[in-house]
């Protein structure tokens, strides 16, 4: 099977049953994407496929050939940490750090969704052209990423700083 991961083409012979998550972790030595439930219920495995956030644990790898996959290992810009990574550190947006890569990848995908006007469950006016990412919007949109340590406040602060206040 052929994949494009973090800009690199890779060819690997894997079992048809292999999930995108296990492909990354067990076959490509990319351990940044985490396994928290393997059932689509925690968000720790979130990666970007063509810029859209998905759960790599529910994705059969075979389905994602030819898609551009970006993991936490691939979000740095010019060797520098992504501004959101720096903001997570500054705002203490994690404790154990296990859900963190998923939170960060999810937030990047989420911000792109909001930027193009994607409404959420919290959006009052479905017809609105623009989305204002207030804290309620961020919390609803990030609810697919569970943090059992409870770093939610710091995570929302970090996201707000990078994707809301910067706008």
């Amino acid at each position: 099977m052929r994949f494009l991961i973090n800009g690199q083409p890779v060819e690997v012979d894997v079992d048809m049953r292999t999930s995108l998550l296990d492909l990354l972790r067990d076959h490509l030595n990319l351990h940044g994407s985490k396994k928290g439930c393997n059932q689509g219920a925690c968000g720790a495995c979130t990666v970007l496929a063509d810029g859209e956030r998905i759960l790599s644990c529910l994705a059969l790898a075979v389905q994602y050939q030819g898609r551009e996959i970006t993991t936490i290992e691939g979000i740095a810009e010019d060797g520098q940490m992504h501004p959101l990574q720096r903001a997570f550190i500054e705002h203490d947006g994690f404790q154990c750090g296990y859900c963190t890569p998923g939170q960060i990848c999810s937030a990047i995908g989420m911000a792109a969704e909001a930027k193009r006007g994607m409404p959420s469950h919290m959006t009052r006016d479905l017809g609105a052209e623009f989305i204002t990412l207030d804290r309620h919007e961020v919390r609803e949109r990030m609810s697919g990423n569970i943090c059992r340590c409870g770093a939610y406040n710091g995570i929302v602060n970090a996201i707000s700083e990078v994707f809301v206040e910067a706008e």
Binding site: H31, I72, M81, I89, E90, P101
Partner: peptide, 17 residues
């Protein structure tokens, strides 16, 4: 600020598995 922060936000902190 957490000293293990950079490793964790990069997904580079190695966990048991």
């Amino acid at each position: 600020t957490r000293i293990d922060g950079p490793l964790k936000v990069k997904g580079a902190a190695p966990f048991a598995a």
